[in-house]
Write a protein that binds this DNA or RNA. Structure first.
Lengths: 359, 359
DNA sequence: TTGTAAGCGTTATCAT
DNA sequence: ATGATAACGCTTACAA
């Protein structure tokens, strides 16, 4: 294992002092070095193969140039996409991404945050974590006090965040089904207190109301936001005395589970039953028939969250401020009151929805 | 933002010197402190809410207690599982996991490794990276020289690693299909030089040979290891003058793509064509019919890789050594010549395979 | 323009 | 048993 090259080595090689090298390599806008020495230093660094020691830099600057991400569940491709999007932006801005174990329940999340904080993390992206609940946890609250936080798909509150237009997602699903002539609509989603899911449900119900329809409690099925959950819920739904003609699922995983349950029960989709998912993960196009769903820009969500975080880290004056969504524009000062812009979603009509058969 | 509590603060609060606190909190086996002061220090740390600064510790110890993972593609759930498995073990051992952007091609991988090295990473898990090619890249080679490396699903060589029994995977698929009476077998897999894929193919072909069968070149289709690739390859296969009665795909994504192509072409699976995938990702059970596949323990693979890495980091004498697979047993010195144990795979017969119809 | 010096929070090696 | 003291590699005043 070859010893690491330090600034000191470069300095000796270039015949200058160590801080001078630091100045050159840090190419600060204000610091001015003689072109000659600058050249010499750069050449020395080059030939020696100098790599800055980020750890040492962190110690003095107090910044680690590392970000944490917390997602509920890596088994859900949606969250993986969010992470991937965040990673890309973070890497471009020179930040590393620390992946936390799964789980955003207050207990687990608090533990993760605690270790992240010990690592001098500069900021953390909380995806679908229940921020309000989290703030109640003593450990979490303490950890959260020390870092910059950006929320993904959470209601605006103490921290800034980015979110998709989940209300519209539910509405679009409902309107699509209504336009196809469906009047007997059901919803399958988790009971968990996750903002995006709640909003999808709410948007769906609101659109039904607007059309003069109600959602009978028997057709509002609670299930974990997984394929297994969707399957089970759909089985229960099919066992009902009165069946709906269309079902909106809180996400694609649930919808695919529901689709499977239909296949198992011999219910033809979309002939006998229409199905709409939400997220538009790759899986949606892999099942047969392909899933009609509402596209939510997961990658973009992650990317924006990371960008927002990086921006706030760059401008310390904003760091302590309360959430203002997308944050100030790179140039001028945007009004602090601006509501978080919701990323648009759109309905992707595919193979699991069709016109309702005349009752 | 409350100022961080340092050892110094704790020392003042406990009325002792700062190194003493370090001694107590580090609870070294050799260091002996008076029970009284120990108590006082612990109490002070407790009330003040002291959290060690990992960055400072890293600077002096030269270890960052962070690991990197490099995977080709986060869109493939298999790799996500590997990462998740690694994360769990790493976290338990007190290591953080730095997630690198996707891509294990020499160029991208080298860049990732370079930044990881700057962060004083202690080790890196290379999943399905072409280690041989990577070592040819100047930047990568330099980076690789500075860290502990563990390979996942790569042939044993310069670095230790863990791998699944990919040869057996191919063989099991072939034997399953042969047992069902199939004699016209095809393979779809990537041309990319990825060890596991090559071995799966080889195992498959070997088993065919053993049964006195050959794999005609027209039935050996090259395609990217994605659903889109599988779809395209299967379309091409179905367009052949002579069709196979069964197809083994390099992974589940490819198989699902193939399944879709069959559905689109009106070819009934498994009645007209049997399909076998590989990996057994969740997706395999979500499609209809459920995919017959070969289960590869992805999570376990990641977990073992992380464990191996952590072990080697704990015992420096092994760190510089060449690869010896699973490494020495925690207790005694295992022979250096021990071949890497391959994690067993097993065939999961589900809905995409059936007896061959009499020709 | 450049070198000197201090200090970031630890750990580790000494004296005491 | 415990307290000075010196690193670790870097950034940032401040001096020269």
């Amino acid at each position: 294992v070859p010893a690491r090259i330090t600034l000191h080595d470069v300095a000796r090689h270039a015949g200058v002092s160590q801080p001078t090298v630091s100045l050159v390599l840090g190419n600060h806008p204000t610091a001015r070095v003689a072109p000659a020495t600058r050249e010499r230093v750069l050449a020395a660094a080059q030939t020696l193969g100098y790599r800055p020691n980020v750890v040492a830099r962190s110690l003095v600057s107090g910044r680690s140039y590392a970000l944490g991400v917390l997602v509920p569940d890596l088994a859900n491709p949606f969250f993986v996409e969010v992470v991937a999007g965040a990673e890309r932006v973070a890497a471009e801005a020179g930040y590393a991404l620390l992946l936390c174990g799964e789980g955003t329940e207050p207990g687990r999340a608090a533990a993760h945050l605690d270790t992240l904080l010990g690592r001098q993390i500069d900021g953390v992206i909380l995806d679908a974590a229940n921020a309000a609940e989290l703030a109640d946890d003593a450990v979490a609250a303490r950890a959260l006090a020390g870092v910059n936080v950006v929320l993904v798909d959470q209601p605006p509150g103490r921290w800034p965040g980015v979110a998709s237009d989940a209300l519209a997602a539910g509405r679009l699903a409902a309107e699509h089904l209504l336009a196809l002539g469906h009047r007997r609509l059901a919803f399958v989603g988790p009971a968990a207190d996750v903002h995006a899911f709640r909003q999808r449900e709410r948007g769906f119900v609101q659109a039904l109301r607007a059309a003069g329809l109600a959602l009978p409690s028997a057709w509002l099925r609670r299930a974990p936001a997984t394929a297994a959950g969707g399957m089970q819920a759909m089985r229960a739904l099919l066992a009902e005395r009165a069946r709906p003609t269309a079902v909106f699922c809180a996400n694609d995983l649930v919808a695919v589970g529901a689709l499977k349950a239909c296949a198992a029960a011999g219910v033809r989709v979309p002939a006998e039953l229409s199905l709409v998912g939400c997220d538009d993960v790759e899986l949606a196009r892999l099942v047969t028939p392909e899933l009609t769903t509402v596209r939510v820009p997961a990658r973009e969500l992650g990317a924006r969250a990371a960008r927002l975080l990086v921006q706030r880290l760059a401008s310390p004056e904003a760091a302590g401020e309360r959430g203002d969504g997308e944050g100030a524009a790179p140039g001028g000062r945007a009004p602090r009151t601006a509501a978080p812009r919701l990323l648009p979603v759109r309905l992707i009509a595919r193979g699991t929805t069709a016109r309702a058969v005349a009752a």
